[in-house]
Amino acid sequence: MDKKNKTIITVIYLLGFHIPHTATFLVFFVFLLIYCVTICGNLLIISLVSYSKSLHSPMYFFLTQLSVSDILLASAVLPNMLHAILEENAATISFSNCITQLYFFAVSECSECLLLTVMCYDRYLAICKPLHYTLLMSHRFCWITVITSWSLSFLMASFYNVVISTIQFCGPNIIDHFFCEFDPILKLSCSDTTIVQLVLTSTTVVFGFIPVIIIIVSYVYIIVTIFKIPTITGRRKVFSTCSSHLIVVSMFYGTILFVYLVPRREQSLNITKFVSLLYTVFTPLMNPIIYSLRNKDLKQVVGRIGNNFLKLLFHHY
């Protein structure tokens, strides 16, 4: 077909998941519940850290930023996904909205990578350099790292959109996925995407592989330091301060690196969808749960707020 006769696509059909008709409303309710719990859980983390002065430390400051990133990620993916579940065949989304979704998805993913790396550095300093922690992890440094992380994330997402705008999209206009991701969108192009894919792979390495190396090296030093502690009780106490972060890092990077660094030809489409579901839907859900259940300080603040509420309630009656 001649390139001049190719139609530029304006609407995209998202096939989503192949769900039996009888299970549609059950699946819709489950993911709606997940979305509500994700938003409420992360807002709770932000509120608790803002409310309690005992949580005004670098670790919890970074945790609030991670919660903001999780809210952004869930809100970028889940509403359209819920719409796709209710549609019998495929959910329609305009091409401009698809690119917008891709933009905010990229912002949240980049920010999550950088924030998890900064949080790892915070744990490294607290455990391996405790005498220098207050000096190195100052209030000013925390704000600089957070502003830098968000600025780089928005800048990189904008760069993605600029690069993608240089190619032409003419169909087919069907994406067998539950949201607009990089690889499925590039498959809709009728232009040569070699350079674009090279750029995306390079930035994935920068925002994915390099932070993983930094995190691994940091945890090697952390583990070595922990084993130098003479008592088992002391080891457990120190390890508990970074165990939540380690679980979250393992979940997030394990899934995202599989999707972006393992060659597509070695992945089945169903596996790719399932793994994508883990880091776009379940990771933002699990982050506040993991940090809340495994963090004594957060549980104490929740308990204190609950006791104050009960006292006010009984006093009123």
Rank of each mutant, 00 (worst) to 15 (best):
D122G: 06
M119L: 12
I144S: 10
L131E: 10
C180Y: 08
C180L: 08
Y121E: 12
F169K: 03
I127Q: 00
I185Q: 13
A126N: 05
K129Q: 13
A157T: 13
F141C: 07
F154P: 14
M137T: 03
S165H: 14
F178H: 11
P130M: 04
S158Q: 06
P172V: 07
H177C: 02
T134L: 01
T134C: 01
R140T: 14
S149R: 02
S151P: 08
I174N: 01
V118P: 05
L125M: 13
S151T: 15
V118Y: 14
T145E: 03
T145G: 00
T148I: 15
N161K: 04
K129F: 09
V163D: 02
C120W: 01
H132G: 00
K129L: 12
N161T: 14
Y121T: 11
I144L: 08
S138L: 01
F169D: 01
L152C: 15
C142I: 07
S165I: 07
E181G: 13
C128H: 02
S165P: 06
D122W: 00
S158D: 08
M137V: 07
F159N: 03
A157I: 13
F178S: 11
I185H: 03
L155Q: 04
Q168D: 08
H139Y: 02
A157P: 12
H132Q: 11
L152V: 13
N173S: 15
L135W: 00
H139W: 01
Q168G: 02
L136N: 03
T117E: 08
M119W: 07
L155H: 03
K129I: 05
M137Q: 05
R123D: 06
V146W: 04
V163S: 03
L155C: 13
S138I: 09
C170H: 05
F159V: 09
P130R: 00
V118L: 12
Q168H: 13
I147C: 11
I144E: 10
H132L: 09
M137W: 02
N161R: 03
F179Y: 15
L152P: 10
R123G: 09
K129G: 03
T166L: 09
M119N: 06
Y160V: 12
C120G: 13
T148W: 13
W143I: 12
G171C: 08
T166I: 05
A157V: 14
D176T: 04
E181Q: 05
E181I: 11
F141Y: 12
L152T: 10
I175N: 03
